Simulated assay, not measured.
Amino acid sequence: MNLTVTPTAIPDVLILEPKVFGDERGFFFESFNACSFEQATGLREDFVQDNHSRSVCNVLRGLHYQIGRSQGKLVRVVAGEVFDVAVDLRKSSATFGKWVGVSLSASNKRQLWIPQGFAHGFLVVSEYAEFLYKTTDYYAPECERSIRWDDADLGIEWPLEGEPILAAKDKDAVPFSRAEYFA
């Protein structure tokens, strides 16, 4: 198998590490293989959309999620480094309101599986970062929600240097206590 899977402190959020083949010419790895993904995780997911963003240092995107059209996300970084965060919004979960953070970079080639029912965000900690992610449902702006990145109830320990650069929707995000949750 070409994929190592490690559960995080929230067992449904998984770190995936592909087997990388490298030599003096460079490297090769399968960034996604449906059979390997299912074999390694026990999950069969249908990814319907791929997204690619580029952000400069100290950009913080999130915490985003969709209600009604929830998305599972398989995320990775192909240039630079980010601190990636998933927050459990499933009220029935033992880890409801908890978060995990993982460093994803072009050099470590890690991926993070974030299932449906989670908010997601990331902070760019390198000069810039290119971030790719596969989703299990299409982007639906009318379903998108945002939770404040700095909500005291969540207590996310972002590795920030100064104030983050935020989009307007993230500046206007609701606190965790007023968010819409999943069952």
Rank of each mutant, 00 (worst) to 15 (best):
residue 21 F to R: 10
residue 137 D to P: 01
residue 149 W to A: 03
residue 29 F to K: 06
residue 122 F to T: 03
residue 75 V to R: 13
residue 52 H to F: 05
residue 138 Y to Q: 07
residue 161 E to H: 15
residue 35 C to D: 14
residue 127 E to D: 14
residue 148 R to M: 10
residue 51 N to K: 11
residue 64 H to K: 01
residue 62 G to S: 09
residue 51 N to F: 08
residue 6 T to C: 04
residue 123 L to D: 02
residue 33 N to Q: 14
residue 110 R to K: 09
residue 22 G to I: 00
residue 94 A to D: 15
residue 1 M to H: 10
residue 112 L to F: 00
residue 60 L to M: 02
residue 51 N to T: 14
residue 63 L to R: 07
residue 8 T to A: 02
residue 22 G to C: 01
residue 96 F to Y: 10
residue 97 G to H: 03
residue 153 D to R: 11
residue 50 D to E: 05
residue 35 C to E: 15
residue 137 D to A: 15
residue 41 T to P: 12
residue 130 E to Y: 01
residue 166 L to N: 05
residue 133 Y to G: 11
residue 89 L to R: 01
residue 139 Y to F: 04
residue 101 G to V: 03
residue 84 D to G: 04
residue 39 Q to F: 06
residue 133 Y to W: 12
residue 52 H to L: 10
residue 108 N to H: 02
residue 133 Y to N: 09
residue 139 Y to A: 15
residue 49 Q to Y: 06
residue 170 D to S: 06
residue 117 G to C: 12
residue 177 S to N: 12
residue 172 D to C: 10
residue 110 R to Q: 07
residue 145 R to A: 04
residue 63 L to Q: 00
residue 135 T to V: 08
residue 100 V to E: 00
residue 45 E to W: 08
residue 48 V to P: 07
residue 134 K to L: 12
residue 3 L to H: 02
residue 78 V to M: 09
residue 60 L to F: 02
residue 123 L to V: 06
residue 79 A to S: 15
residue 17 E to R: 05
residue 42 G to K: 06
residue 138 Y to E: 12
residue 43 L to R: 09
residue 158 W to K: 04
residue 27 F to V: 08
residue 134 K to F: 07
residue 101 G to D: 05
residue 109 K to A: 07
residue 49 Q to I: 02
residue 154 L to S: 04
residue 135 T to A: 13
residue 154 L to C: 00
residue 114 I to W: 00
residue 155 G to T: 03
residue 135 T to Q: 06
residue 131 F to R: 05
residue 38 E to D: 09
